[in-house]
Design a protein around this nucleic acid. Structure first.
Lengths: 229, 229
DNA sequence: TAAAAAAAATGATTTTAATCAGCTTTCAAT
DNA sequence: ATTGAAAGCTGATTAAAATCATTTTTTTTA
């Protein structure tokens, strides 16, 4: 259980900051950011922002994982990204001037900091390192999504699952992958039943181990081979 | 036939510049840009840049259309974007520091200007209007691609074709849509045969007219309805 | 303008994955 | 500890779209 008082979360001591976009900040900038941000505890399944609304600031994940998704015509979620500790989310719509095209929902308990739009835009304008980091991030994601689109269009569900498990492996690190079957299906872009059957296949082939809800990758090599290019 | 000598292409008189990211440049910046850019004629089907190579500058489309695509495992193209007059292409990889994740190929005869990396990055650093324009563009595209991914995952080929035709209608403007069936299939993310059959259905339903290679949208309303959200 | 090549079209068949329906296990709340 | 709800699982069936094999038309170029 996380500390719900979240008094202790300061940018200077924030473990997630080190390899975030704020990682290279000097002491002065860290202190400034610390004064501008507010921090809040989110319980599991809580909304951070919703598709169609307009951004008033950005969110910085101090602790916990978040799913970023759009809804299709029939309301079915397509998970675009799973964000983890250290990531800044919700800045895309701030630059585009549009409403959010995605929603963000916590997958577990989270501590999330918030920086108001004007403060963040001011940071971007005055801090070229942060700015370049943001531009690099936007550009990288754009490339990743081109690949994502191609995978959706051309790979089989089995190949996409292998690919998704590799990404999830990176995101969860030492921890075991912990998603509902439905969320995983909505990430792979398939029906829940199909996903369940394929997970069983992967288990039978010794690629993963299933511990009820949690998944463990056993054979990374096979996964890489299965996922293709 | 375009003028292959392309001597006349100067930024000050460039018709494509007005509603491009360079549109708000002052006379001085226009002149500077004009001195930094070089301009070249590309014939139909020529490569502008190729997936896997590293960018040395950006390209600005003065005349003609370009397909931007990645190749899947079996070499099949997935068209991510079709760029038209006024668009700057190839800047994503310059910011991300990665190799190109996409290739760009002319769909017709083109006049394309080129600005070297250092010159362009210098522009970005010194011109906040251009910079904000670029960030807005990156962010917008990122949102569009989230929707693209969701469409791929959840819409039927028929719905995706309707969606694609709407986008193509915008891109081609008054002109008729002019793509090979294969390119169109690679944009929609389907097999060429499937695309051909669906085009015939759309024709029979009075949605489009087919003039051999060129397509004309007749019933925009039906298209919008078919494409869904 | 004739020949060759590329693109478009059509029909038959197969494959993949979605859908539907019902059942079981797990988890959370009282 | 019990119960209800959510999540997970299984089997049968259907539907969508890919693939394969040819033929026809259009475009290019020799």
């Amino acid at each position: 259980m996380l500390d719900k008082s979240h008094k202790h979360v300061t940018c200077a001591t924030c473990g997630a900051r080190k390899d975030s976009l704020f990682g290279s900040f000097c002491d002065h900038d860290v202190e400034l950011t610390n004064e501008q941000k507010t921090c809040a505890y989110f319980k599991k399944g809580q909304a951070i922002f919703i598709e169609g609304s307009f951004p008033r600031g950005v969110f910085c994940l101090n602790q916990g994982k978040v799913k970023v998704f759009t809804r299709g015509d029939e309301g079915k979620e397509q998970i675009i990204h799973i964000a983890k500790e250290g990531e800044i989310i919700g800045f895309r719509a701030m630059f585009s001037g549009e409403a959010y095209k995605v929603s963000a929902l916590t997958l577990e308990e989270c501590n999330i900091c918030y920086i108001a739009k004007d403060d963040f835009l001011n940071m971007i304008d005055t801090n070229s390192t942060l700015r370049n980091g943001i531009m690099k991030e936007l550009s990288k994601e754009l490339g990743d999504r081109a690949v994502f689109i191609t995978n959706m269009a051309q790979k089989s569900v089995r190949e996409r699952l292998a690919f998704a498990l590799m990404i999830l492996g990176d995101i969860y690190g030492d921890e075991q992958i912990n998603l509902t079957r439905e969320d995983m299906a909505n990430f792979v872009g398939t029906a829940t039943e199909t996903l369940i059957r394929l997970l069983k296949d992967f288990k039978d082939e010794g690629i993963i181990e299933i511990h009820t809800r949690k998944l463990e990758i056993i054979d990374q090599e096979k996964l890489i081979h299965l996922a293709g290019k």
